[in-house]
Amino acid sequence: MNKQSNAYTIIYIIVLVVIVGTALAFTAISLKPRQQANADADKMRQILASVAVEVPGNEAIAAYERYITSTFVVDETGNRVADADAFTVDVAKQSKESASERLLPVYECTLDDSSVKYILPMYGAGLWGPIWGYVSVDSDGTTIYGAYFAHQGETPGLGAEIEKPAFSSQFSGKKLIKNGAFVPVAVVKAGQVPAGDADYVDGISGGTITSKGVGAMIDNCLQPYSAFLESLNK
């Protein structure tokens, strides 16, 4: 058989690709449930990080079931949406919808001192890729209790600093509702103050675009919750 002929070459590569493709499809399908479980556990870990409950990945599920007492989905008017599962709502997709169309997941968390916090997910864009986070709010809906931020590939040492507690801990105690109206927390350059009376935190020096991304994410993702937060305040 002539191994250099075109027919042999084409048949050879087709057979090879089919074999490799089958092997990959089999691997992907058989490992899918395990990978999904890992991704879910990681999401639970991140949710808990926003209320300062730090657990390793393998204990996340148990801790999540212990602290998160209920989950629900609200709409822009603050009413609960029936038949929607908060955990499986795709925040990335929802954050691109107009505010009135969005499904807004809320995780209700009861801490060890039996105080209740509400955890709200956020999703936005940094400099190089997506950034996301969770912010927890006190039971009266006005004050931020804690925040957690993560990113896919921001610049190490600059934009990537948003995932460090040094940045996220600044959010504790900031007000989301002032004089009965919703004001998103602004992220500004250190030493500056924003226009208006919004509470603010210092951005990352050298990570201006990522910092602005965080500010825009808070604005975009928490604004639709304003009716829900104000209803807590009453």
Binding site: K3, Y8, I13, L16, A23, T27, L31, R34, G57
Partner: peptide, 29 residues
């Protein structure tokens, strides 16, 4: 076939790498 040997090598390596990556995602997330 000599004229596509690099492509064959790449297909084999790429297949194995994806399998390793999937295994890590499942067992060492």
């Amino acid at each position: 076939p000599t004229n596509i040997r690099i492509i064959v090598q790449l297909v084999v390596v790429a297949g194995l790498v994806v399998i390793v990556s999937q295994l890590l995602q499942a067992y060492a997330y």
